[in-house]
Nucleic acid binder design. Structure first.
Lengths: 203, 203, 203, 203
DNA sequence: CATGAATGAGAGTTCATTCAT
DNA sequence: TATGAATGAACTCTCATTCAT
């Protein structure tokens, strides 16, 4: 009846991208369960039907968004270690860089991270992606440390601890903001701990 | 006919308790969004209408349950430090105890923890409870360390780190089970790190 | 928002009945696929949600309606044979009675029969009910014929033929109304054929 | 690149034919309501838009297919009677031939027949085609019987009965497969009945 | 003429919440 | 105060049809 058809350009890829980016952003802002497929369609500027041409269901959009997001989350950390291996900087400096970059990245998409954690807990498929992502990051960091001739016993497990401490740190920095904590101190203590963790048995 | 009349006329408090305990358990098992208020009512053995006499909405039940649950989660950790302060055991032994108890507790209610994390991320009110809980635990552990004459600089921040590393550890032990990690080693490395963290500048 | 709650009486059974009767009638009138659950709800004077309290899905309403309908369809035919067995009437009279009653019954719910045939073809579950119904009718008629001392060889198969010829007849009488046929003649020829079929090997 | 260009530039007629044949086949296989126009387009190897160039809507494709199909359904029956008129075979042999051919034909397109019956019940337009088809077949059979010098009183009505009994028979043979019936017996009884029907008042 | 991406109304179904009893 | 049947808006997803290319 009141059908008005918008003049269309955009390639399929651009459209799919828009749905992922806008859709994921919206789901992160409001929560997966609080956003309907109609909301996503409107926000992405497409019709509801169009969504289902590119995605099997609502969750599929979230998963695609999550994959892209997790890539971005890990890059800065891995990059810092690449720098560490290739340039003449100290472990202290790397750790400091990692913490700062991690907070910066998460601040850019703080809701995304929350929603991801949330979905990760509830949905096996998303948990898998999360887990896979950690393994990849672990492997890359491990590789850089070896290049730098740091011989860590139990490197994988230590890097796991490292990643999670960094994650907790940036999470704390962005959300909780407990007035009881001195965040300058928190930064220093976290640094110290992470450096100890990776120093290796060099003596 | 031969209807056996239940002898116990439940008081309001008993009813409310039942809704919280059973309701929270069910929501943790199946996920907040996958359980309806009718399900909760049935599971708790009350009428749907009754729920709305005690709670403003479904979320309110979850929040009450979460509060109770978080209390239990922290007790074992705090208890371990009380033991530490009052008995002659080493820091290594406390840390080991904390890790083991933490895993044990979480295993008992692993779904609860997942669902909590999920809701914590999405709901400010629940996040508040979570945060409040951590502060209380931090204060208590701090107190026990002082009793034991361990003078930690930046104790609050260190205990924060401690709690989160413990949490990550037990989470990893229960869920992810990455085949790439050696969980015996993970245990040892986590122990070492936590001991270092709390050893203080005793020298 | 604009929730207005109607003062309700009616027992559950009355409500379920209304949904079945009105719902089935509507589906028969307009066709199963052309009636929505909202239509049914409105027509039955209940809310959409209410339908799903009593029925698993839309098809379930149709099936219940179909079961009731098929019972009614067969009763007249079976009744005629019961009369045949218990009273002093001729085979010709029974056949005549069956044809007339069958047309009368179908005329009362002619759409129902069409829709049923339609669904029966497309849906295994409904086909089952249809088939089951025929078997029951066959058995009952067989029983009455034996009471009347009519010894039919291959009674089951003959009754099957009988039922289907009656069915075709009443279907033709109600719908097609081909001007090419003389329906008085059609009646006579059908009668004759049916009588021959059941006369048995009395010689 | 090395794109092989299809040498045949299909004419409009070829395209329309393909849509009818493939589309009807698909609708019969899966059911009218379970096949989308996109499915039909894919199956027929044309674009969705193309369909609407040749047909007003989805139903129109089905109707065209139905017309063609019904032609084929009747041919074997009519053919048998042509044989009967032109060759020296008995009525018993014709009836036997008709039953066997009818089952064979229906088996080839059993889904088509089911779907047709279904649509025939629901759609006036399709019912018309069905009805028209029967009249044509009746007329042709009648003609053959006259050629064979079989003077049937009420031939049209008897042939109507004949056609429907044949139809019921082949339907029963293909679908219901009630274990309660002996299908060898069913065949014999149906034969006998049909022969009686057409034997005429030759004495 | 042909295409197929895009449309959006509408399908079946669910469920937090209400309120007559 | 307790009940649970009833509500109906809102959800996810489908598909006949259109029309810019």
């Amino acid at each position: 009846m009141s059908t008005v058809r918008k003049p269309i350009k955009k390639t399929s890829i651009q459209k799919k991208d828009k749905i992922i980016d806008q859709g994921f952003a919206l789901m992160c802002e409001k929560g997966f369960h609080n956003v309907s497929s109609i909301d996503i369609a409107k926000y992405a500027g497409v019709s509801t039907g169009c969504i289902y041409q590119y995605f099997k269901d609502k969750k599929a959009i979230f998963i695609e968004g999550a994959k892209r997001h997790l890539k971005n989350i890990c890059f800065p950390m891995v990059d810092a270690f690449i720098k560490f291996a290739s340039q003449d900087i100290s472990l202290e400096e790397v750790v400091s860089l990692v913490l700062k970059e991690s907070v910066k990245t998460q601040r850019l998409s703080c809701n995304a991270h929350q929603e991801l954690l949330s979905m990760c807990c509830l949905d096996e498929e998303i948990a898998q992606i999360f887990s896979q992502n950690e393994l990849e990051a672990t492997a890359k960091i491990d590789e850089q440390l070896r290049l730098k001739k740091i011989n860590l016993s139990h490197s994988k497990e230590k890097i796991h601890l490292f990643i999670h401490i960094v994650d907790d740190y940036s999470h704390e920095m962005i959300y909780h903001q407990h007035p009881e904590y001195d965040y300058e101190v928190m930064y220093e203590e976290t640094c110290k701990l992470l450096v100890q963790l990776l120093k290796g048995e060099e003596k």
